[in-house]
């Protein structure tokens, strides 16, 4: 082998790079995400399988219908009607975002920006208890960008 001094380190770097998923994780099995389901309600607006796969698409449709088409009632595949509202309808049953939404979202590192505006149930007080008077312009400019 010629130029082994350069090629072998390069080769090792290449192998390490393409095998990152293997060694960077080794021994650290990820816990299976177990979202906490509401106790008093058995069924969501659609089947569990559908919701797991398509909830985002559904919410997107809801959002569009409500905001842009002024339509607020969803009729599911069984003919039942629901108010199309994340904050007021979904979260009526799923009362704990942290134990429901976040479980899977954190697992796959999907961070939809719903909650930048919509208020999850457990945060209803949250920020409001903080002293707002003390927030000077300086301090507040250091707040993390909430766009994401």
């Amino acid at each position: 082998m010629h130029d082994a001094g350069k090629i072998i380190p390069g080769m090792i770097a290449f192998v390490l790079f393409v095998t990152i998923p293997f060694w960077a994780n080794f021994g650290k099995a990820a816990p299976e995400p177990k979202p906490e389901l509401p106790k008093e309600y058995k069924k969501c607006v659609e089947s569990k399988d559908f919701m797991r796969r398509e909830h985002m698409k559904l919410l997107r449709k809801w959002r569009f219908d409500v905001v842009r088409n002024n339509m607020r009632v969803y009729i599911n595949s069984e003919g039942q009607t629901f108010d199309m509202s994340l904050q007021n309808e979904c979260m009526r049953c799923h009362t704990q975002k942290k134990k429901f939404c976040d479980v899977c979202h954190d697992y796959v590192a999907a961070h939809p920006y719903c909650w930048n505006c919509h208020i999850p149930p457990e945060e209803k007080k949250g920020w409001a208890t903080k002293e707002t008077e003390n927030l000077t312009e300086e301090v507040s400019s250091k707040q993390p960008a909430s766009h994401h």
């Binding site: 990152i20 998923p21 960077a24 994780n25 650290k28 990820a30 816990p31 954190d106 697992y107 796959v108 590192a109």
Partner: peptide
Amino acid sequence: FRFFSYPV
């Protein structure tokens, strides 16, 4: 890589 790591 978000599919191959936890925590991401």
